[in-house]
Protein backbone atom coordinates (compact mmCIF):
# COMPACT_ATOMS: atom_id res chain seq x y z
CA UNK A 1 0.00 0.00 0.00
CA UNK A 2 1.13 3.51 -0.69
CA UNK A 3 1.51 5.30 2.63
CA UNK A 4 0.01 8.70 1.78
CA UNK A 5 -3.26 7.32 0.42
CA UNK A 6 -6.10 7.85 2.86
CA UNK A 7 -8.27 4.76 3.26
CA UNK A 8 -11.93 4.98 2.31
CA UNK A 9 -14.39 3.88 4.97
CA UNK A 10 -14.85 0.39 3.51
CA UNK A 11 -11.07 -0.05 3.06
CA UNK A 12 -10.18 0.47 6.71
CA UNK A 13 -10.00 -3.23 7.59
CA UNK A 14 -7.53 -3.82 4.75
CA UNK A 15 -5.35 -1.00 5.97
CA UNK A 16 -5.41 -2.51 9.46
CA UNK A 17 -4.32 -5.94 8.20
CA UNK A 18 -1.55 -4.39 6.16
CA UNK A 19 -0.41 -2.33 9.10
CA UNK A 20 -0.28 -5.58 11.09
CA UNK A 21 1.89 -7.21 8.44
CA UNK A 22 4.26 -4.23 8.50
CA UNK A 23 4.39 -4.49 12.29
CA UNK A 24 5.30 -8.18 12.15
CA UNK A 25 7.97 -7.47 9.57
CA UNK A 26 9.45 -4.75 11.77
CA UNK A 27 9.31 -6.98 14.83
CA UNK A 28 11.01 -9.83 13.03
CA UNK A 29 13.70 -7.46 11.82
CA UNK A 30 14.34 -6.02 15.26
CA UNK A 31 14.29 -9.23 17.26
CA UNK A 32 15.56 -11.68 14.66
CA UNK A 33 12.63 -14.04 15.34
CA UNK A 34 11.52 -15.86 12.21
CA UNK A 35 7.91 -14.76 11.56
CA UNK A 36 7.95 -15.42 7.83
CA UNK A 37 5.25 -18.10 8.08
CA UNK A 38 2.82 -15.77 9.84
CA UNK A 39 3.67 -12.89 7.52
CA UNK A 40 3.22 -15.13 4.50
CA UNK A 41 -0.20 -16.38 5.72
CA UNK A 42 -1.42 -12.90 6.53
CA UNK A 43 -0.21 -11.54 3.19
CA UNK A 44 -2.04 -14.26 1.29
CA UNK A 45 -5.17 -13.70 3.34
CA UNK A 46 -4.99 -9.94 2.83
CA UNK A 47 -4.63 -10.39 -0.91
CA UNK A 48 -7.60 -12.76 -1.08
CA UNK A 49 -9.67 -10.40 1.03
CA UNK A 50 -8.78 -7.46 -1.21
CA UNK A 51 -9.56 -9.35 -4.38
CA UNK A 52 -12.90 -10.34 -2.94
CA UNK A 53 -13.68 -6.80 -1.76
CA UNK A 54 -12.73 -4.96 -4.96
CA UNK A 55 -14.45 -7.41 -7.26
CA UNK A 56 -17.77 -7.02 -5.45
CA UNK A 57 -17.93 -3.27 -4.87
CA UNK A 58 -21.34 -1.62 -4.63
CA UNK A 59 -22.02 1.29 -6.99
CA UNK A 60 -21.60 3.68 -4.05
CA UNK A 61 -18.18 2.26 -3.22
CA UNK A 62 -17.16 2.55 -6.86
CA UNK A 63 -18.21 6.20 -6.79
CA UNK A 64 -15.95 6.77 -3.80
CA UNK A 65 -13.01 5.26 -5.72
CA UNK A 66 -13.91 7.26 -8.85
CA UNK A 67 -13.86 10.45 -6.75
CA UNK A 68 -10.76 9.55 -4.74
CA UNK A 69 -8.60 12.65 -4.30
CA UNK A 70 -5.50 10.65 -5.26
CA UNK A 71 -7.03 9.28 -8.46
CA UNK A 72 -4.84 10.09 -11.48
CA UNK A 73 -6.10 13.13 -13.38
CA UNK A 74 -5.76 14.28 -16.98
CA UNK A 75 -2.25 15.66 -16.60
CA UNK A 76 -1.09 12.47 -14.87
CA UNK A 77 -2.36 10.34 -17.73
CA UNK A 78 -0.88 12.63 -20.37
CA UNK A 79 2.56 12.46 -18.78
CA UNK A 80 2.31 8.66 -18.61
CA UNK A 81 0.77 8.13 -22.06
CA UNK A 82 2.47 10.61 -24.36
CA UNK A 83 6.05 10.68 -25.56
CA UNK A 84 5.42 14.18 -26.81
CA UNK A 85 2.74 16.59 -25.70
CA UNK A 86 2.04 20.23 -26.47
CA UNK A 87 -0.88 21.83 -24.71
CA UNK A 88 -2.98 24.16 -26.87
CA UNK A 89 -4.86 26.79 -24.93
CA UNK A 90 -8.02 28.81 -25.31
CA UNK A 91 -11.35 29.01 -27.10
CA UNK A 92 -10.26 31.91 -29.36
CA UNK A 93 -13.11 33.96 -27.95
CA UNK A 94 -11.72 35.33 -24.74
CA UNK A 95 -11.34 32.38 -22.40
CA UNK A 96 -9.05 29.49 -21.51
CA UNK A 97 -11.19 27.22 -19.32
CA UNK A 98 -8.83 25.22 -17.10
CA UNK A 99 -11.45 22.53 -16.47
CA UNK A 100 -10.83 21.26 -19.98
CA UNK A 101 -7.30 20.67 -21.21
CA UNK A 102 -6.37 19.80 -24.75
CA UNK A 103 -3.44 19.55 -27.07
CA UNK A 104 -1.52 17.47 -29.55
CA UNK A 105 0.35 14.38 -28.49
CA UNK A 106 2.42 11.54 -29.78
CA UNK A 107 1.55 8.22 -28.18
CA UNK A 108 3.82 5.33 -29.13
CA UNK A 109 4.42 6.87 -32.53
CA UNK A 110 0.78 7.78 -33.14
CA UNK A 111 -0.08 11.46 -33.37
CA UNK A 112 -3.40 12.47 -31.84
CA UNK A 113 -5.40 15.32 -30.41
CA UNK A 114 -6.09 14.64 -26.74
CA UNK A 115 -8.77 16.54 -24.84
CA UNK A 116 -10.12 15.92 -21.36
CA UNK A 117 -11.52 17.33 -18.18
CA UNK A 118 -9.07 18.20 -15.44
CA UNK A 119 -9.54 17.71 -11.70
CA UNK A 120 -7.23 18.90 -8.99
CA UNK A 121 -5.74 16.87 -6.14
CA UNK A 122 -6.02 19.61 -3.55
CA UNK A 123 -8.12 22.72 -2.98
CA UNK A 124 -5.66 25.04 -4.69
CA UNK A 125 -5.55 22.91 -7.83
CA UNK A 126 -9.30 22.39 -7.74
CA UNK A 127 -10.01 26.09 -7.55
CA UNK A 128 -7.91 26.55 -10.65
CA UNK A 129 -9.77 23.89 -12.65
CA UNK A 130 -13.17 24.47 -11.01
CA UNK A 131 -13.30 20.92 -9.58
CA UNK A 132 -13.46 19.53 -13.09
CA UNK A 133 -16.68 21.35 -13.99
CA UNK A 134 -16.30 23.04 -17.37
CA UNK A 135 -17.89 26.30 -18.45
CA UNK A 136 -19.37 26.62 -21.96
CA UNK A 137 -16.02 28.09 -23.03
CA UNK A 138 -14.35 24.79 -22.13
CA UNK A 139 -16.61 22.86 -24.50
CA UNK A 140 -15.92 25.45 -27.19
CA UNK A 141 -12.18 25.03 -26.67
CA UNK A 142 -12.65 21.28 -27.05
CA UNK A 143 -14.60 21.80 -30.26
CA UNK A 144 -11.98 23.99 -31.85
CA UNK A 145 -9.41 21.29 -31.05
CA UNK A 146 -11.70 18.65 -32.61
CA UNK A 147 -11.79 20.76 -35.78
CA UNK A 148 -8.01 20.95 -35.61
CA UNK A 149 -7.88 17.15 -35.52
CA UNK A 150 -10.26 16.94 -38.49
CA UNK A 151 -8.14 19.35 -40.52
CA UNK A 152 -5.00 17.29 -40.00
CA UNK A 153 -6.58 13.83 -39.99
CA UNK A 154 -5.56 13.12 -36.41
CA UNK A 155 -7.50 10.74 -34.20
CA UNK A 156 -9.17 12.29 -31.17
CA UNK A 157 -8.82 10.87 -27.68
CA UNK A 158 -10.98 12.26 -24.90
CA UNK A 159 -10.45 11.50 -21.22
CA UNK A 160 -13.56 12.25 -19.19
CA UNK A 161 -13.69 12.78 -15.43
CA UNK A 162 -16.26 15.38 -14.43
CA UNK A 163 -19.02 15.79 -11.85
CA UNK A 164 -20.86 17.70 -14.60
CA UNK A 165 -20.88 20.97 -16.51
CA UNK A 166 -20.80 23.92 -14.12
CA UNK A 167 -24.20 25.23 -12.99
CA UNK A 168 -23.68 28.99 -12.67
CA UNK A 169 -25.09 32.34 -13.74
CA UNK A 170 -22.44 33.11 -16.32
CA UNK A 171 -22.56 29.55 -17.65
CA UNK A 172 -26.27 30.04 -18.40
CA UNK A 173 -25.67 33.46 -19.96
CA UNK A 174 -22.96 32.17 -22.28
CA UNK A 175 -24.92 29.03 -23.19
CA UNK A 176 -23.92 25.91 -21.29
CA UNK A 177 -26.70 23.95 -23.01
CA UNK A 178 -25.91 25.02 -26.55
CA UNK A 179 -22.16 24.57 -26.03
CA UNK A 180 -22.66 20.91 -25.10
CA UNK A 181 -25.32 20.37 -27.77
CA UNK A 182 -23.04 21.82 -30.45
CA UNK A 183 -20.28 19.39 -29.48
CA UNK A 184 -22.67 16.45 -29.75
CA UNK A 185 -23.74 17.53 -33.22
CA UNK A 186 -20.30 18.47 -34.50
CA UNK A 187 -18.64 15.30 -33.19
CA UNK A 188 -21.17 13.42 -35.32
CA UNK A 189 -19.80 15.18 -38.42
CA UNK A 190 -16.11 14.38 -37.91
CA UNK A 191 -14.38 11.86 -40.14
CA UNK A 192 -11.46 11.11 -37.82
CA UNK A 193 -11.83 8.34 -35.23
CA UNK A 194 -12.83 9.45 -31.74
CA UNK A 195 -11.98 7.35 -28.70
CA UNK A 196 -13.51 8.36 -25.37
CA UNK A 197 -12.55 7.01 -21.99
CA UNK A 198 -14.45 7.72 -18.79
CA UNK A 199 -11.58 7.69 -16.31
CA UNK A 200 -13.51 8.68 -13.19
CA UNK A 201 -16.81 10.49 -13.01
CA UNK A 202 -18.96 10.63 -16.12
CA UNK A 203 -21.80 12.84 -15.03
CA UNK A 204 -24.54 13.89 -17.36
CA UNK A 205 -24.30 16.15 -20.41
CA UNK A 206 -21.06 17.57 -19.07
CA UNK A 207 -19.43 14.19 -19.74
CA UNK A 208 -21.29 13.43 -22.96
CA UNK A 209 -20.08 16.77 -24.38
CA UNK A 210 -16.75 14.99 -24.99
CA UNK A 211 -18.24 11.54 -25.42
CA UNK A 212 -19.81 11.12 -28.87
CA UNK A 213 -17.09 8.70 -29.90
CA UNK A 214 -16.57 5.70 -32.16
CA UNK A 215 -15.49 3.71 -29.13
CA UNK A 216 -16.37 4.50 -25.54
CA UNK A 217 -14.44 2.84 -22.72
CA UNK A 218 -14.63 3.06 -18.97
CA UNK A 219 -12.01 2.41 -16.36
CA UNK A 220 -13.11 -0.41 -14.08
CA UNK A 221 -14.22 1.81 -11.20
CA UNK A 222 -15.47 4.77 -13.23
CA UNK A 223 -19.16 5.57 -13.44
CA UNK A 224 -21.35 7.12 -16.13
CA UNK A 225 -24.83 8.48 -15.48
CA UNK A 226 -27.50 10.92 -16.56
CA UNK A 227 -27.50 12.62 -13.15
CA UNK A 228 -25.37 12.34 -10.03
CA UNK A 229 -26.87 9.85 -7.55
CA UNK A 230 -27.07 12.73 -5.04
CA UNK A 231 -29.11 14.82 -7.47
CA UNK A 232 -31.34 11.88 -8.35
CA UNK A 233 -31.99 11.06 -4.69
CA UNK A 234 -32.91 14.63 -3.87
CA UNK A 235 -35.35 14.85 -6.79
CA UNK A 236 -36.98 11.40 -6.77
CA UNK A 237 -36.67 10.43 -3.11
CA UNK A 238 -36.63 14.03 -1.88
CA UNK A 239 -33.80 13.15 0.48
CA UNK A 240 -30.03 12.83 0.10
CA UNK A 241 -30.12 9.82 2.44
CA UNK A 242 -31.18 7.67 -0.48
CA UNK A 243 -28.04 8.38 -2.51
CA UNK A 244 -26.77 4.79 -2.40
CA UNK A 245 -30.21 3.45 -3.41
CA UNK A 246 -30.23 5.91 -6.31
CA UNK A 247 -26.71 4.82 -7.27
CA UNK A 248 -27.94 1.21 -7.48
CA UNK A 249 -31.08 2.13 -9.42
CA UNK A 250 -29.29 4.30 -11.99
CA UNK A 251 -27.09 1.39 -13.21
CA UNK A 252 -23.95 3.47 -13.45
CA UNK A 253 -21.14 0.91 -13.45
CA UNK A 254 -19.12 -0.18 -16.47
CA UNK A 255 -20.52 -3.72 -16.38
CA UNK A 256 -24.11 -2.42 -16.30
CA UNK A 257 -23.49 -0.06 -19.20
CA UNK A 258 -21.83 -2.79 -21.29
CA UNK A 259 -25.17 -4.62 -21.18
CA UNK A 260 -26.91 -1.67 -22.82
CA UNK A 261 -24.12 -1.26 -25.42
CA UNK A 262 -23.45 2.23 -24.14
CA UNK A 263 -19.88 1.26 -23.33
CA UNK A 264 -17.63 -0.81 -25.61
CA UNK A 265 -15.14 -2.05 -23.06
CA UNK A 266 -13.83 -1.91 -19.53
CA UNK A 267 -10.21 -1.05 -18.81
CA UNK A 268 -8.75 -2.92 -15.87
CA UNK A 269 -7.51 -1.00 -12.86
CA UNK A 270 -4.97 -2.25 -10.33
CA UNK A 271 -6.33 -3.75 -7.12
CA UNK A 272 -7.87 -0.94 -5.06
CA UNK A 273 -8.17 1.48 -7.97
CA UNK A 274 -6.13 3.50 -10.45
CA UNK A 275 -4.44 5.59 -7.74
CA UNK A 276 -2.60 2.56 -6.33
CA UNK A 277 -0.67 2.14 -9.56
CA UNK A 278 -1.11 4.96 -12.08
CA UNK A 279 1.63 3.49 -14.32
CA UNK A 280 -0.21 0.18 -14.61
CA UNK A 281 -3.50 2.00 -15.31
CA UNK A 282 -1.91 4.20 -17.96
CA UNK A 283 -0.37 1.12 -19.58
CA UNK A 284 -3.79 -0.54 -19.87
CA UNK A 285 -5.25 2.71 -21.15
CA UNK A 286 -2.52 3.08 -23.74
CA UNK A 287 -2.97 -0.48 -25.02
CA UNK A 288 -6.69 0.09 -25.51
CA UNK A 289 -6.16 3.41 -27.28
CA UNK A 290 -3.38 2.19 -29.58
CA UNK A 291 -5.40 -0.89 -30.45
CA UNK A 292 -8.34 1.31 -31.48
CA UNK A 293 -6.17 3.71 -33.48
CA UNK A 294 -4.70 0.74 -35.37
CA UNK A 295 -8.14 -0.65 -36.16
CA UNK A 296 -9.45 2.68 -37.45
CA UNK A 297 -6.29 3.48 -39.41
CA UNK A 298 -7.40 0.92 -41.99
CA UNK A 299 -10.91 2.39 -42.31
CA UNK A 300 -12.11 5.13 -44.62
CA UNK A 301 -13.52 8.49 -43.55
CA UNK A 302 -17.10 7.60 -44.46
CA UNK A 303 -16.95 4.37 -42.51
CA UNK A 304 -15.61 6.16 -39.43
CA UNK A 305 -18.34 8.78 -39.55
CA UNK A 306 -21.21 6.44 -40.42
CA UNK A 307 -20.31 3.76 -37.92
CA UNK A 308 -20.29 6.39 -35.17
CA UNK A 309 -23.71 7.57 -36.30
CA UNK A 310 -25.07 4.03 -36.35
CA UNK A 311 -23.68 3.33 -32.88
CA UNK A 312 -25.66 6.17 -31.29
CA UNK A 313 -28.63 5.74 -33.63
CA UNK A 314 -29.25 2.31 -32.14
CA UNK A 315 -29.25 3.43 -28.51
CA UNK A 316 -32.48 3.30 -26.57
CA UNK A 317 -34.99 0.68 -25.43
CA UNK A 318 -38.69 0.97 -26.27
CA UNK A 319 -41.70 -1.07 -27.32
CA UNK A 320 -43.32 -0.89 -30.72
Amino acid sequence: MIKDIKPLEFEKSIFQIEAKIEELKALSGETGIDLSDQIETLTVQAKEFKEELYSSLTPSQKIQIARHPNRPNFTDYISLLANDWVELHGDRAGTDDRAIIGGVACIDGHSAVVVGTQKGKNTKENLKCNFGMPQPEGYRKALRLFYHAERFGLPIITLIDTPGAYPGIKAEQTGQGVAIATNLREMAKLTVPIIAVITGEGCSGGALGLGVANKVFMLEHAYYTVISPEGCASILWRSPEHTSTAAEALKITATDLMKFDIVDGVIKEPLGGAHYDPEYTAKQLKETIINCINIFSTKGKEFIKNSRYDKFRNMGVFVE
Binding site: A181, L184, R185, E186, A188, K189, S204, G205, L208, G211, V212, Y224, T225, V226, I227, C232, I235, L236, A249, L250, K251, I252, L257, F260, I262, R308, Y309, F312, R313, M315, G316, V317
Partner: peptide
Protein backbone atom coordinates in the same frame (compact mmCIF):
# COMPACT_ATOMS: atom_id res chain seq x y z
CA UNK B 1 -34.70 17.32 -19.15
CA UNK B 2 -33.50 13.75 -19.48
CA UNK B 3 -35.58 11.04 -17.79
CA UNK B 4 -33.75 9.70 -14.75
CA UNK B 5 -35.62 6.39 -14.81
CA UNK B 6 -33.75 5.40 -17.98
CA UNK B 7 -30.43 6.82 -16.77
CA UNK B 8 -27.61 6.55 -19.32
CA UNK B 9 -30.07 5.44 -22.00
CA UNK B 10 -31.76 8.84 -21.64
CA UNK B 11 -28.37 10.54 -21.76
CA UNK B 12 -27.63 8.78 -25.04
CA UNK B 13 -30.81 10.20 -26.57
CA UNK B 14 -29.06 13.57 -26.45
CA UNK B 15 -26.31 12.15 -28.64
CA UNK B 16 -28.75 10.31 -30.91
CA UNK B 17 -30.95 13.33 -31.65
CA UNK B 18 -27.92 15.59 -32.13
CA UNK B 19 -26.40 13.12 -34.62
CA UNK B 20 -29.68 13.20 -36.59
CA UNK B 21 -29.56 17.02 -36.63
CA UNK B 22 -26.00 16.81 -37.99
CA UNK B 23 -27.46 14.96 -40.99
CA UNK B 24 -30.22 17.57 -41.39
CA UNK B 25 -27.50 20.25 -41.43
CA UNK B 26 -25.59 18.38 -44.11
Amino acid sequence: GARMQESALSLMQMAKTSCAIARANE
